[in-house]
């Protein structure tokens, strides 16, 4: 889980072009949207593609975004729960 969270932070910074941030700046439980990192619904769509690209997980309904992408930790939990058996 620790490694996954660290990977996710790097991937999020890269995908969303958060140039001024380092992985250390993002707390595991910090909300990613609005009051937290200030991400918005366009970022949610970017993160859906991130899950597909890096973890082969398809989120069919964008309405699920807020729940899955609440924080890096919730993302990691979602990935762990939905990862296809290797």
């Amino acid at each position: 889980m620790e490694n996954l969270i660290q990977d996710l932070k790097i991937q999020i910074i890269d995908q969303l072009n958060l140039q001024d941030l380092t992985p250390q700046d993002i707390g595991d439980d910090q909300p990613l949207f609005v009051e937290g990192l200030g991400l918005d619904s366009i970022d949610a769509l970017e993160l859906i593609v991130l899950l597909q690209q890096h973890y082969d997980i398809k989120v069919a309904n964008p309405e699920d975004g807020p729940k899955i992408f609440h924080s890096v930790k919730t993302m990691a939990e979602y990935i762990t729960a939905h990862k296809k058996a290797a």
Binding site: Q15, I42, L45, E46, V49, Q52, Q53
Partner: peptide
């Protein structure tokens, strides 16, 4: 496949 919205928007 696997396109993201930012550049399009």
């Amino acid at each position: 496949q696997m396109l993201t919205p930012t550049a399009f928007i």
